[in-house]
Every structure is written in C-alpha cells, then in structure tokens.
Simulated assay, not measured.
Amino acid sequence: MNIEKSRLPGLAAALVLAVGLSACATTDTPPYMGGPDNFGEANRQTMMAQVIDPDPHYETAIPESSGDHAADAVERYREDKVKKPERMTTTKSMSSGGGSN
C-alpha cells in the first residue's frame, strides 16, 4: 500500500483522534439512554404519580358531613330551587381620565 507523504500527517491525526474518542465510549451504557436502569423511567414516574396510596394517613379519618344537609341540597336541586351564591367581586375597577392637552 503506497501512501503519499503529504497525506501521512492527516492520517496520523485521524488515527490519534479515533483512538482518543474510542476511550470515551463504553459498552455497557448507551449515551442516549443514561444507563441500563434509566430506560422507561419517565413512564414509571408517570405511572407512580397515578397510584393511590394503599395506606393513607389523615388527620380526620372520616370527614364531617351531614346527611340531612345533603338530602336538603338534593331536594332543592330536583325542585330547581337552588340557593344562589352571593355575588363577590375580587377586583376593583378604577378608571382614570387620560386626556391630553
């Protein structure tokens, strides 16, 4: 194999670069997956966010409620006599005159 002397420095640089880059490569961890334990991790995290705690601990075991109050509300709903909520405003509107002379 005859290699021109003018190409020899370029080939040597390419060989050194290839050897140097191969030292960075590992065979056990693909760089795009972050490791063997990371595959599907986003899916697992999403699934676990939707799982209900099988042993929840609350300050009050059963929330306080009134069956009579709920029955009255259902009856008002059926008779179309629902209590209207109070009108509340959360902002005050302020107008300013922006006239120019």
Rank of each mutant, 00 (worst) to 15 (best):
L11H: 03
L11Y: 08
A13P: 02
A13N: 04
A14H: 05
A14R: 02
A14Q: 12
L15W: 00
V16L: 11
L17E: 07
L17T: 04
A18V: 07
A18M: 15
V19E: 07
G20Q: 05
C24K: 10
C24H: 04
C24M: 10
T26I: 02
T27K: 07
T27W: 12
D28E: 09
T29A: 13
P30F: 11
P31E: 08
P31M: 09
P31G: 05
P31Y: 08
P31I: 14
Y32L: 15
M33N: 14
G35P: 07
G35S: 04
G35A: 06
P36E: 07
D37F: 14
N38S: 14
G40F: 08
G40R: 03
A42G: 02
N43H: 06
N43T: 11
Q45C: 04
T46P: 01
M47R: 06
M47P: 00
A49S: 11
A49V: 00
Q50G: 05
Q50A: 14
V51N: 03
D53M: 02
D53E: 15
D53G: 04
P54S: 07
P54K: 05
D55I: 11
D55Y: 06
D55F: 03
P56S: 03
P56V: 05
Y58Q: 13
Y58F: 14
Y58V: 09
T60W: 00
A61Q: 01
I62W: 02
I62C: 05
I62L: 10
P63Y: 01
E64S: 04
S65D: 02
G67A: 13
G67M: 08
G67I: 07
G67K: 04
D68Q: 06
A70V: 14
A73M: 14
A73V: 12
R76Y: 01
R76A: 12
R78F: 03
R78V: 08
D80F: 02
D80T: 03
D80I: 01
K81G: 06
K81N: 12
V82G: 06
K83Y: 11
K84F: 09
K84P: 00
P85Q: 14
P85N: 15
R87E: 11
M88I: 04
T89H: 15
T89K: 13
T90K: 11
T90I: 03
T90Y: 14
T90W: 15
T90L: 03
T90M: 15
T91L: 01
T91V: 04
K92I: 12
